[in-house]
Design a protein around this nucleic acid. Structure first.
Length: 727
DNA sequence: AGCACGCCGACT
DNA sequence: GTCGGCGTGCTC
């Protein structure tokens, strides 16, 4: 730990940069630090916050040694959290300093929250009692301290009135401790009446909490089965035991609706934690989590790095959601890191989903996780009647993309004054533009993916790197005017087709391109929920989180989209997405319908969705993955995400094969996950591995580094899950 | 990751 | 003559 040299005491300090090990700093005489202390240290030309780490210090050149400037008045990062940082650094092959950086993302929170100035009633009486003064005294009755502006506001007077009373000694200045960011949740606030299978599931979770040990439960409940209510019982049990609780949600799902639901159950909102929390709030939440004042946090993946004082449960909702993957700097999957955090902290973890990831299903079937299934649905929340439309038999009209079968159902839905949702997971107007004369295709000059036409904006946009240009009139290759043709549909194009069919219907397109940002989007979603649109055309953004009570028809424009992209998870992802989308309808109690436009009605994904038999899908998918040795079965799959040149990508692919001969598949992909054949231009080399066996993977990385020392620093690793060595 | 230093093109 | 592009190198 802290070692005394003959001259100065020194401490290892993890600084927030890609350092492989802690740096050594001198501890000035009289300063007290312990492992976990958050300290201010000089680093190059600037001052940074670092964490005093475990272990002995390395002797460094006396000329290099600098001193810790300050120990923050802040609870030290506990041992479990420090081990968590080291574990993640090792597992993701990232520098520990970069992992530590994720803990230090609330710089102002390291100093205690200041007490604020307040006013308290004294025994003195004012010289004259005016109307305004009387209101102030009535408001302040009860002896509690008020802020000056708060009291003025509550009494409906100007703050000069308060100032006058203060001057007369009717009020005295007192210091008020910082206000809690949220009220304390009450586990007994509104205990729900649970259905029998919910009750049984809640009992199992409660037992896991009572056991006071690490354990993972996969809570697998079909849409509408009341998963949230069940895991709220686990939350209540953990709170009863006195621990703190973290509920992880995919960023998108961190909605108002969830917070309300929590408040209904516990009488208070959880503290929120996500990337667009205002800085002041961020600091207060961080501090109060560290001090234990906040009991429950609902947050995005970064909430995993909050310094909980006494964490007793993590719930990962929608555990299959890809938003849990962080894919820059430190590559990690928050769902898996939550499991690791539980293991280190010795507490239970609950993974909840209506469509669990294949990894979690495998972990459950192999006994590493417990599995609790909720199979019955509330009667009024029945799923829609689901059917596929075989596009070979009911093709769309020329130039269109909607089958007559779907159009007819939309017409009927309109007649009944109910809402339809068309889902197409593709922004813009058309995913590819080409010249009818010379065949020129518009590609991205930066990353060589195709440019997507956004007709509304008059632009061609690269959805991978954000590059955009004006849509020209003439072909840049042959110069012919007005012969550019849009290939394939995006939501804008579907909207055009819909308006052609139903010119009088209120049609709206919802995608992340919507002008006006998140606020506008929220307003539009609300408007739709209030019935202010007849037909909604949306990307996956409509698939998540939001309920539309009047929606009785869901049409999936291209259910096959995403099945053929070479991703080993394509079928799983499509199944999950289609389950979610079709779940958007049918919560009304009215009869509702889901239609999937597909060219492969016999594909296992379509059969599973239409029949509702997800068990069969999982069994088949797991068997298939095992046979092909794809994730999550103990083989390694490497993905080169981008390379400096095509030749370099190829040579690294060969190196990859040599060093990982057992790898089942080597995916050589472009920066845009485009096939290698699309790679062109110069790109920084980056490597992304979705692998299972850590030993294989690390060996491979070492081989890569030996192969090309210049690559060091630009190699990044993603590990999805490693069931063999995980726990 | 920041941030400084350092060496070549278009402008107050 | 300077401002500014990002390549390279370092941080106890």
């Amino acid at each position: 730990m802290i070692e005394d040299s003959p001259f100065v005491a020194a401490a290892p300090v993890l600084v927030p940069m890609p350092a492989e090990r802690p740096y050594t700093y001198a501890v000035p005489p009289g300063m007290r630090v312990v492992p976990g202390s958050i300290v201010r240290v000089p680093l190059g030309p600037r001052q940074v916050a670092g964490i005093v780490w475990d272990g002995t210090v390395e002797t460094v050149d006396a000329k290099k040694l600098r001193s810790i400037e300050q120990v923050f008045d802040c609870p030290p990062i506990d041992r479990a959290m420090r081990r968590f940082v080291d574990w993640i650094a090792q597992y993701t092959l990232s520098a520990p300093g970069m992992v530590a950086r994720m803990l230090l993302r609330a710089p102002e929170a390291f100093d205690p929250e200041p007490w604020i100035e307040g006013l308290q009633r004294t025994l003195a009486e004012p010289d004259r009692l005016t109307d305004a003064r009387r209101r102030v005294l009535e408001t302040a009755e009860g002896g509690l301290a008020w802020t000056r502006s708060g009291l003025a506001h509550a009494a409906g007077v100007s703050s000069t009135v308060i100032g006058g009373l203060r001057a007369q000694g009717v009020f005295e200045t007192v210091m008020i401790p910082p206000r809690p960011v949220v009220a304390a949740p009450d586990p007994g606030h509104a205990v729900p009446e649970l259905m029998p299978d919910q009750k049984a599931a809640a009992e199992k979770l409660r037992a896991a909490i009572a056991a006071d040990a690490f354990n993972v439960t996969l809570l697998d409940g079909v849409t509408g089965s009341g998963k949230t209510e069940v895991y709220f019982e686990a939350v209540a049990a953990a709170l009863d035991k006195g621990g703190q609780v973290l509920i992880l949600l995919p960023e998108i799902a961190l909605t108002h609706a969830f917070l309300e639901r929590f408040q209904d159950r516990f009488g208070a909102k959880p503290a929120e934690w996500h990337s667009d929390l205002p800085p002041r709030m961020r600091e207060r939440v961080w501090r109060q989590v560290a001090e234990g004042g906040v009991r429950v946090v609902a947050g995005a993946r970064s909430a995993l790095f909050l310094p909980f004082e006494d964490l007793g449960l993590i719930v990962v909702d929608e555990e299959h959601d890809p938003a849990y993957k962080q894919e820059d700097r430190v590559f990690y999957n928050a769902r898996d890191m939550a499991v690791v955090r539980g293991h280190i902290g010795g507490f239970p973890v609950v993974l909840a989903s209506a469509t669990p990831s294949v990894e979690s299903r495998v972990n459950a079937s192999q006994g590493r996780y417990d599995r609790v299934v909720l199979s019955s649905r509330f009667a009024e929340a029945a799923l829609p009647d689901l059917k596929s439309i075989d596009m070979r038999r009911s093709p769309p009209a020329r130039g269109g993309f909607l089958s007559p079968v779907l159009v007819e159902q939309m017409r009927r839905t309109l007649e009944r004054k109910e809402q339809s949702l068309l889902f197409l997971n593709r922004r813009g107007y058309a995913p590819l533009t080409l010249c009818r004369v010379c065949g020129h295709r518009f590609g991205c000059p930066v990353c060589s993916a195709w440019l997507v036409e956004h007709r509304f904006r008059g632009q061609l946009v690269c959805h991978h790197c954000g590059h955009n240009e004006r849509r020209p009139e003439a072909c840049p290759e042959c110069g012919t005017l007005d012969h550019l043709v849009a290939c394939g549909p995006g939501v804008e194009r579907i909207a055009e087709e819909v308006v052609g069919h139903f010119p009088d219907a209120r049609t709206i397109v919802l995608s992340s391109d919507l002008l006006g940002g998140v606020r506008r989007l929220r307003l539009e979603l609300e408007a739709v929920a209030n019935g202010e649109a007849d037909i909604v055309i949306g990307t996956q953004l409509v698939a998540k989180g939001h309920n539309f009570p009047g929606m009785t028809l869901v049409g999936v424009v291209d259910a096959d989209l995403g099945l053929a992209n070479g991703d080993p998870r394509a079928a799983e992802r499509t199944f999950q997405l289609l389950s979610q989308v079709t779940g958007r309808a049918g919560r009304t109690g009215k009869k509702s319908l889901g239609l999937l436009q597909t060219y492969q009605p016999d594909h296992p994904v379509m059969r599973a969705i239409v029949s509702g038999d997800s068990e069969a899908f999982y069994e088949r998918e797991i068997a298939e993955r095992e046979r092909a040795a794809l994730p999550p079965f103990g083989r390694l799959a490497g993905i080169i995400v981008s390379a400096a040149t095509r030749g370099e990508a190829e040579s690294h692919a060969r190196a990859l094969r040599r060093s990982a001969p057992t790898a089942s598949d080597l995916f050589v992909l472009g920066p845009a996950e485009a096939p290698l054949s699309l790679l062109g231009g110069r790109h920084r080399f980056r490597l992304l591995i979705q692998g299972e066996r850590r030993a294989d993977m690390q060996g491979f990385i070492r081989a890569m580094l030996a192969e090309g020392p210049k690559l060091r620093g630009s190699v990044r690793v993603q590990v999805d899950i490693d069931p063999q060595s995980f726990l």
